[in-house]
C-alpha cells in the first residue's frame, strides 16, 4: 500500500503540522513516510502545502504531482490541485470560502466543514485535526491510537495538555465528514 497525499491551504491553518502528525502516525505503525513541504517565502495568509506519503515499501520520489488524495482547504488550492488527483482518488475539502466546488466526476469527493465546526468547539487551533479526522473516516490509513501517539510525538511536551482536545477534534471530524460524490464503480 502506498498513499500519496497533498494537503493544501493557507499558511496558519495547520497544514504542515497536520501532515507531520499524519507522518508520525504512519511511523507508529512501522510504515515508511515522507513529508515534503512547499517551503518558500511564505507566511501566515499565504498558500502552504505539504506532500505526505505513507507506504509499506521504501518511498521512491518524495516529490510528485499526481495524488491519491488531495485535502483542499482554500479556493486557490482547489484551483491548483483538483486536476492533480488520480482517477478514482479522493478529494476532501472544507467548504468554507470555496466559491467553485469540485467538478470532476472520476474521483471521490468528500466535504468536512471543519472551520465551522472549530468555531463551534471554540478552538480555531484544532481545525486541522477535524480535517484529519474527516480524512481518516474516508480512508482509515492509520489507526486512531497511532494518531494519538503521532500527536504526542509532534507536540512539544509543554503542549501535551492539549492532546485530549486534539483527539476529540479528530473524532468530531469523523462524525461530520460527508460524501458529496462517488463515481460509479464498474
Amino acid at each position: 500500500m502506498t498513499e500519496e497525499i497533498i494537503i493544501a491551504g493557507f499558511g496558519g491553518q495547520g497544514v504542515l503540522s497536520m501532515g507531520k502528525i499524519l507522518a508520525y502516525s504512519g511511523i507508529m505503525q512501522d510504515q515508511e513516510v515522507s513529508w515534503m513541504p512547499s517551503y518558500g517565502p511564505e507566511m501566515r495568509g499565504g498558500t502552504a502545502n505539504v506532500t505526505v506519503i505513507l507506504s509499506d515499501e521504501p518511498i521512491s520520489s518524495p516529490i510528485i504531482n499526481r495524488f491519491d488524495t488531495a485535502i483542499i482547504l482554500n479556493q486557490q488550492s482547489m484551483d491548483k490541485f483538483e486536476g492533480s488527483v488520480k482517477a478514482g482518488g479522493l478529494l476532501l475539502y472544507d467548504g468554507n470560502g470555496i466559491t467553485r466546488h469540485p467538478e470532476r466526476k472520476d474521483i471521490r469527493v468528500y466535504r468536512v466543514d471543519a472551520a465551522e465546526e472549530a468555531a463551534k468547539m471554540e478552538s480555531a487551533r484544532i481545525f486541522n485535526m477535524i480535517v484529519l479526522g474527516g480524512f481518516l473516516k474516508v480512508k482509515p490509513l492509520v489507526k486512531i491510537e497511532n494518531v494519538r501517539k503521532g500527536i504526542a510525538e509532534s507536540l512539544p511536551e509543554r503542549h501535551h495538555g492539549l492532546i485530549p482536545l486534539n483527539e476529540k477534534a479528530v473524532l468530531r471530524g469523523m462524525e461530520i465528514v460527508k460524501q458529496v460524490f462517488e463515481p460509479e464503480t464498474k
Partner: peptide, 10 residues
C-alpha cells in the same frame, strides 16, 4: 539541496 534539507523522513 533545499528539498532534502526541508523534507522529513524516518
Amino acid at each position: 539541496d533545499g528539498a532534502l534539507g526541508q523534507m522529513m523522513e524516518k
